[in-house]
Each structure stands twice: as C-alpha cells, then as structure tokens.
Design a protein around this nucleic acid. Structure first.
Lengths: 194, 194
DNA sequence: TGACCGACCGACCAGTTGGTCGGTAAGACG
DNA sequence: CGTCTTACCGACCAACTGGTCGGTCGGTCA
C-alpha cells in the first residue's frame, strides 16, 4: 500500500470518530507516522485531504451497488438488491456509514460541488428505481426520496446507534451484530413493497 | 426570556449547524451579543454550555413523549403514540433532531454520564414498550433496540437528509415538508406491527 | 559523475482556541 | 448612605490551529 493510501486510511479513522473539525492535521500526521510538513506534502490542505477520504467512500459505495445491480432485472429485484447491498455494506463498513452520516449532517453549509457528486449519482439512480417501481405498483406511493431516506436511514442509523445504545444502557443488553442487523434488513423489503 | 436562555438558544443553533468542534466560544458570544468573558460568566466552560443545550433537548423530548403517553393504554397504542410523537417532534423541531443525531455520532468517545442520562431514560422506556408489545404478539420479533433504532432512524434521517438531498439534487424535485414526513410516518406503524 | 526528483523534516508563522484576571457599572438590600 | 451581588468588559495568556519555509536525504536517469 502506498504511503498516500496509508495516510488516507488513518485520516478516515480519525474523521469518522471525531468529525472534520474534531481532528487536527497534527493528529493525522502522528497517526500516519510523519511530521506535519510531510503530511502537507501529500495533501496540500486539510480540506482536500478530507475530500479525498470522502471520494474513496463514495466510489466504494457506488461500485458495490452497481456491481450488485448488473445481475438484477426489473424494478423490484433491483430495488431489493440496493437495500440488501446497502445494508450489508453498512454492516461491514460501519465506520464508513458513520462518516457518510456525518457528511450528511455537515455538508448543507458547504458549497463544494465535487464532494457531493458521487453521492448525487447514487441518489439519482436509486430515486429513479423507486419511481419505476411505483409506476408498476410494486412500491407504495409517496415522495420517492422520502422513501429512500427512510430506507437508508433505518440502516445507517441502526448501525450508528448501536455502540451508543450499548454505552448508554451499559452494554450486555444487546444481541450480536448479525442478529441486530438482521432485524433491520430482513424487514426492509417487506416494508418497502406495497 | 432570560439572557441565559437567550445564550442557550444561540448556542444551540450554532452547535446544530456546525457541531461541537465547529463552533468557537467567540462565535457564540458574538451571536448572543456579548463578549467572550461575558459568555464564560454564564457558563464556566464550553463543554458545560454544550451539556446544558443537550439537557434542554432531552428534557423536551422526554416531556413531549411522556405527555402524549398519559392518555394511551396498552402496548400497541403506547408504541404507536411514541412513533407519532417522535415523528411530529422531528418535523417541528428538525434542528433538534439534527443535533441529537450529532450527539449520537459523537458521544461514543465521551465519558460524561450526565449528558446521556435523559436519553437513557427515554430509551429504556421505549425499549420496555417494544418488549411488552412483542410479548403480546403485537410487534414482530427481533432485538427490541434494533427495532427502535430502525424506527427513530427512519424519522431522524429522513428529516436530516431532506435539505441535503435538496441541495445535492438541485432542489425543485422535493415535495413539501408535510408530504415528505407523511410518507415516512404514515407507514411506520404498519411496518412496526406484525 | 552530476542534475534533478519526490519524500520528508524542524523551525517558524500569524491567527485562533478555550479560558483567566482585575476591574467596573448597575441595581438590590440593610 | 454603604455594602454586596450580578452582569459584563478589555486585556491577556498558553496552547494549539492550518499552513509555509528552507533545507536534507536517498534515489533515478543521462
């Protein structure tokens, strides 16, 4: 793995845990095993480093979904595939799901287009899928994006809330990861389809 | 309204928009119309100010829910009430929903017990409600907290994602607030109950 | 060999951070 | 009247912020 990727990995961990403003360049540099100036040599500004971290995330999500969609035919199967893939992705890559959530909370007040583009493509495709499924009467009526938001929200939030719930309630009361996520994903299709 | 409450209001706005680390004491002081030292006079540290903001939020949510529950009898009605109330609360107080989400993302690495306590009470009550409803066969099986996470996640995320979606997709494609939230809340009971 | 390169460093910079300190002005209370 | 409290300020502080600078090192290539 290149040093550049190594830096991105460390930075991603830190951004995921503390958010953009909660992480200093110095902290990233230490985590990546180099000095402040060495870090800036690879990424000219903190913001560009952060953008690069998000780009990797967006690319991965888009890739995973579009890969899974190649075999699927028809709106219903496609939509069900998206739900399943996003669910397992959030389970396996819970850190990235958390980071994506942070970005959704933050980027309202950001102007940078480039960062939101990968997410935009993903969203548009998913929305068109819902609309198509609605046209065939497969999916219940309602604002398509709201349905999507509910869908991804169920998954993402469940993933994010888990450690917090565990901490707040003192642990021990939670089932294992698989059962937790199974509870959520298993019913999403049933929820979704009319 | 007391100056103290005024400060809390301004601080809440800023924390909601930028997160704890994204807001400086100076920015809060300016927004509240006093100097840095004047702010510190009212709240000795930034962290305590933030905690107070969260406490108000937790109290409100708990109050709203418990108020609505006084009339309700039986697990099914109670649970349906919670869903409806949290939904409308998230709609009316979308800023607070956003702030709560931020807290869920952040507080994993915080040690402070006091801040999470109001949320804990709310969660425990809701969880017991789900368990009771499951015992009577009203609610589908599965980890109760996972079901709750899915529920609140649907609501909160939908609320949070709305402006972001609008921005990413360039606006104009979204229905109004009421229809958006109606899409989500209307189906939650149907989803929840077996 | 010598010219150039990317990777990286220590020292440094101006500006900002959360927070302290001594003081002051207005009002409440005796 | 004097005393005490509350609300607030300007000046200040050490620590940290993102970022720059000049320079060093080990390689690569002609």
């Amino acid at each position: 793995m290149s040093k550049r990727d190594d830096i991105l990995d460390r930075a991603e961990e830190l951004f995921t845990e503390h958010g953009f403003h909660g992480v200093s360049l110095a902290a990233i540099a230490v985590a990546a095993g180099l000095g402040n100036a060495g870090l800036i040599h690879h990424f000219p500004t903190k913001r560009k480093l952060y953008r690069e971290v998000l780009r990797r995330l967006g690319d991965e999500l888009e890739g995973v979904v579009s890969d899974a969609l190649t075999g699927a035919t028809g709106p219903r199967e496609k939509l069900a595939t998206v739900v399943r893939v996003v669910g397992t992705w959030s389970l396996q890559r819970s850190g990235r799901a958390r980071l994506m959530m942070r970005e959704l909370l933050d980027n309202v007040d950001r102007v940078d287009k480039a960062r939101t583009l990968p997410l935009a493509r993903f969203l548009e495709n998913a929305r068109d899928l819902v609309t198509a499924a609605q046209a065939e009467g497969l999916v219940r009526d309602g604002e398509p994006l709201a349905i999507l938001a509910q869908l991804f929200g169920s998954i993402a939030y469940a993933q994010i809330a888990r450690p917090t719930f565990a901490k707040i309630l003192g642990g021990k009361l939670l089932a294992d990861d698989r059962r937790w996520m199974a509870t959520i994903v298993a019913d999403l299709e049933q929820t979704l389809f009319a």
